[in-house]
Each structure stands twice: as structure tokens, then as C-alpha cells.
């Protein structure tokens, strides 16, 4: 079984995410009327294989597998998938899986590109503080991703309620107030994790004379931190409407996804 690498395992996980995505389309077309377990099981199968893939890579490296873009992406997706499975256990939240699986599938396919994992399972850095930095930041992105998924559910249901679509009442989706609350809590958790990750990153050794806040990735992360802080403050103290808050959560995560790899490639301190 030596030929069966962690990448094969991840490929299988992405296949499960793909199946879940196809099933999600059917659920969507049926208006989310039946709160069934099929999608949950498909997603759970994907996350189990995903966990195995990461465990295999981690055991090869003897550390947390967050050394390159492939590993970082799979870690982010894993955090998102696992959190979805946990949240989906709440009453009427199983449809979260239908919103998460398309994200896991599309980003998972992207992560499988060979250029993201040029050296395979080869340790590129070590140390507990580096692992803490990478793991907390990627978990923060996972929380932001799940918040975006909950926000998408909010916008779909809010639109249906607003325009008197019958599926708003026929669907098994949770109430819009609960979805907004979950989105806000996930953003708060992600924000706290991002804060810890950035603080840990500041403590890491770097070339002499290179200020922490001169690196493109650090600046990008700090901007992201400010964006999420603004969202939390505007919601809490300035009465930002739930619709705008949800739209901002989705937009912020899309920007995160689209610029994450780009800033990583041009970051000097991440390629020392």
C-alpha cells in the first residue's frame, strides 16, 4: 500500500465532497424540504478521508502538516469541514453541509494542483510556535469560511421570506435570526484565532532588520484582521443590518480565498 499516498487519500476525500455537492444541488432544487442524513454522511466520509490524508502527511513530517500551500489549503478545508459536521448536529442545521460541500469541492480540486505541493511531504519548517501560528491562522480561515456558508444560508432564506417564496416556510432551514447569530459567533471565533495566530507570528525569528509589518502576507493578514474587526464592531455598536453583515461575511471570505495564495507566493518571510 506504499503507493497509496496522502494525496491519493485527499483525492478520495475531494471525490466525496464532489458527490455531496451533486446531492446538494438536488436538495436545493427540492427547496430543502427533507432534513435527511445522506449529505451529512457523504460529507462525514469526505472529512474522515481528509483527516486520514492529513494524519499520513503529519506522520511523515513528524509535525503539523502546514508547510506549503497544499498543506495550508487542506488544513483550512479540514477545519471548515469538521466545523460543519459539528454545527450540522444542531436542529435544522444539517443543510449546512449542502452549503459547505461546494466550497470544499472547488477549493479541494484547486489544492490538488501539483504546483501547490512541489516537494511532497518534505519538512520545510519546525517548532511549536510556527505550528501554533500556522494552525491557529488556518483554523481562523476555516471559521471565516463556515461563517460565510452560514451567511449564504441566511441570505437565501432572507430573500425567500422577503419575497414570499413558499419554500421559505416549507424548507427545513433554521430561522434567519439563528443563522445571523451563528455567523457572528463564527466570525468572532475566527477573529480571536487570527489574533492569536498573528501574535504568535510576531514572535517567530526572521532576518535581522526585516520588520514584521513590512511583509505582504503580514500586511494582508492585518488588513483582514481589520476588516473582520470592523464587521464585528459595526454589527455590535452601529446596528448594521443582518443582510449587510451576511453579505460582508461572504465578500470577506471570497477575498480571503482569492488572495490567500497570491500573498503567500510573494511573502518573503514565508519563503525564508
Amino acid at each position: 500500500m506504499a503507493w497509496f499516498t496522502d494525496r491519493h487519500c485527499f483525492l478520495l476525500a475531494v471525490t466525496f465532497y464532489g458527490l455531496s455537492t451533486i446531492y446538494s444541488v438536488f436538495l436545493w432544487r427540492k427547496g430543502f424540504r427533507r432534513d435527511d442524513w445522506v449529505n451529512y454522511i457523504l460529507l462525514a466520509g469526505g472529512v474522515a478521508l481528509h483527516t486520514l490524508a492529513m494524519a499520513k502527511r503529519g506522520m511523515t513530517l513528524h509535525s503539523c502538516p502546514v508547510n506549503n500551500l497544499y498543506e495550508a489549503t487542506t488544513f483550512l478545508l479540514w477545519a471548515l469541514g469538521l466545523a460543519s459536521l459539528v454545527y450540522a448536529l444542531l436542529p435544522r442545521f444539517k443543510f449546512l453541509c449542502a452549503f459547505t460541500s461546494p466550497v470544499l469541492f472547488t477549493v479541494g480540486v484547486f489544492a490538488l494542483m501539483p504546483s501547490l505541493d512541489p516537494h511532497g511531504a518534505k519538512p520545510e519548517f519546525s517548532g511549536a510556535l510556527r505550528s501554533l501560528h500556522a494552525a491557529t491562522i488556518l483554523q481562523a480561515y476555516g471559521a471565516f469560511g463556515l461563517a460565510a456558508v452560514a451567511a449564504a444560508m441566511f441570505l437565501v432564506e432572507q430573500h425567500d421570506l422577503k419575497f414570499h417564496k413558499i419554500r421559505a416556510v416549507l424548507s427545513q432551514l433554521p430561522s434567519i435570526q439563528r443563522l445571523e447569530m451563528i455567523t457572528a459567533r463564527l466570525i468572532f471565533v475566527g477573529f480571536m484565532l487570527l489574533t492569536i495566530g498573528l501574535a504568535a507570528g510576531q514572535q517567530l525569528p526572521r532576518h535581522e532588520g526585516v520588520p514584521y509589518f513590512s511583509d505582504i502576507k503580514v500586511i494582508w493578514s492585518a488588513l483582514l484582521w481589520l476588516v473582520y474587526l470592523e464587521m464585528l464592531v459595526a454589527r455590535r455598536y452601529f446596528g448594521r443590518s443582518p443582510r449587510r453583515f451576511a453579505a460582508a461575511a461572504i465578500a470577506a471570505f471570497l477575498v480571503l480565498l482569492l488572495t490567500f495564495w497570491f500573498t503567500n507566493l510573494f511573502s518573503a518571510i514565508h519563503h525564508q
Binding site: L161, A168, V169, L173, S175, I176, Q177
Partner: peptide
């Protein structure tokens, strides 16, 4: 499943909005 009167439809709507 579901509300078959105007009154219960109103309740169901309320439950779709509030926790």
C-alpha cells in the same frame, strides 16, 4: 406537516424569522 390555516401559517413564519 405544515400550517393549513391562516393563523398557523403566521406562527410558522414567525418561527422562520425568530429563534
Amino acid at each position: 406537516r405544515g400550517s393549513v390555516s391562516v393563523m398557523s401559517a403566521a406562527v410558522e413564519l414567525a418561527e422562520k424569522i425568530f429563534i
